[in-house]
Computed example of a mutant assay.
Amino acid sequence: MIRTASVAAALCAACLTSACVHIGPSRLKADQVDYARALGDAKKREILAAVVGLRYGDAPAFLTVSSIIAAYTFDASGGATANAGSGSQPNYALATGSVSYSNHPTFTFTPTTGEAFASAYIRPLAPALVLPLAEGGIPIDLLLRITAQSVGGLQNGNALGGENSAGAPGFFELLRALRRLQLAGELNVESRKVGDKNDQMSVFLVMGATTSGDSPQITADVARVGKLLHLSSNTRSYEIVYGPSSAWQKADKIPMVTRSVLGILTDLGAQVQVPAERINDGSTKPTVGLIGGETRPTIIVHSGKTAPDNAYVMIPYGGSSYWVDRNDFDSKYAFTVVQNLMALAEADTSSKAPVVTIPAN
């Protein structure tokens, strides 16, 4: 009987020990995906909170997750007692074991301030940073609608533009023509080194340069883009330069004024539909409408007392809930583009990516 108890205790300890040995790999499989999703969802809420806050004139604040420590502790113990018995005392054996498990995740947040804040969120995004995204498949009309304040002197909608806040009709006409050329494979974005700029790449817009065959629609779109931007017909390659149209009078260059991240978020906030009482009591300004066939907001943000359970992203603000509908693909895609643009803007300000440490004892 004593031998049986000893064997049982040994088996118990072995099982508990084997569970401890395998906890690390098993948790890594789950945590890698779970924490990645959690970081993405947290970033979406941060962006929506900034958009809605700017709608009401609140200054946004941004936190960077610099480290994640998921500490797991697994303790196990086992023992056995036995009594051979004598006289009226019966023989008996007893095996005991205990298991304890704990999870103590630790997150480290770093506020973005000072020069890092100015570089990532206040300075305009460089055209060389933004436009190559179109070559990666992002619709160029959506990309320019989000990031460009003006292209060739044609003004985009502006939250603080007063009477001209809705933008120029020619701007949205330009976006539609560029999108048709992109879908036809007749629009490319190229990065090249120009002159002595060995450490800086220039971005060129190439239109109608493929050999897939001309069509009346493509010919008309190329001509219309050239007319709207006052481009020369002697070339199909045009350099994108930063600045207003008055600073660049050359017919082989396309001047562009880009927005900063704060400018992008402010513009998105100006399109958010808010309760009428918030406008009447002076909490915010009326919603900015668009013209030229682009009356749909870039991202449709709903507001109400409560958000649906399956909302794509939701935040509470001032007694109301604001959310993006999960069934609204266009808004979700635009939201993803904004999230990617912010990641590009923050790339130079982050000393390193978040570190995930998973100790399993």
Rank of each mutant, 00 (worst) to 15 (best):
G157I: 00
Y101D: 13
A118C: 01
P139C: 06
T108K: 12
A95E: 11
L133N: 08
A159S: 10
L205W: 02
P111F: 04
K193S: 05
L125M: 15
F171W: 06
G162P: 04
R180K: 10
G137T: 06
E115A: 15
K197E: 15
L154K: 06
A120I: 01
A128V: 09
S119F: 00
L187K: 05
A120M: 05
G136N: 12
G157S: 15
R123P: 00
V194C: 01
D141N: 15
R176N: 12
R176L: 11
F109C: 04
A134Y: 03
A126G: 08
A177Y: 05
P127W: 01
A120F: 03
Q217G: 04
N156D: 09
T210Y: 11
A126V: 09
E173S: 12
F171H: 04
D196S: 10
P139I: 05
R176Y: 06
E163W: 09
D141T: 03
G208L: 05
L133P: 02
R180L: 07
G153N: 07
A120D: 04
S215F: 10
F171P: 00
D199Q: 09
N188M: 10
L142K: 14
G153Y: 03
S191N: 12
E163C: 06
P124G: 08
P105Q: 07
N103M: 09
L183E: 13
L142R: 15
G152Q: 04
V99K: 15
A134L: 03
R179T: 07
A148C: 08
A128N: 12
S212P: 00
I140F: 07
I122H: 05
G185C: 07
N188L: 10
S150D: 13
S165W: 02
L125T: 05
P124H: 04
I138F: 12
P127V: 03
V99Q: 13
S165I: 02
G185I: 07
D199K: 11
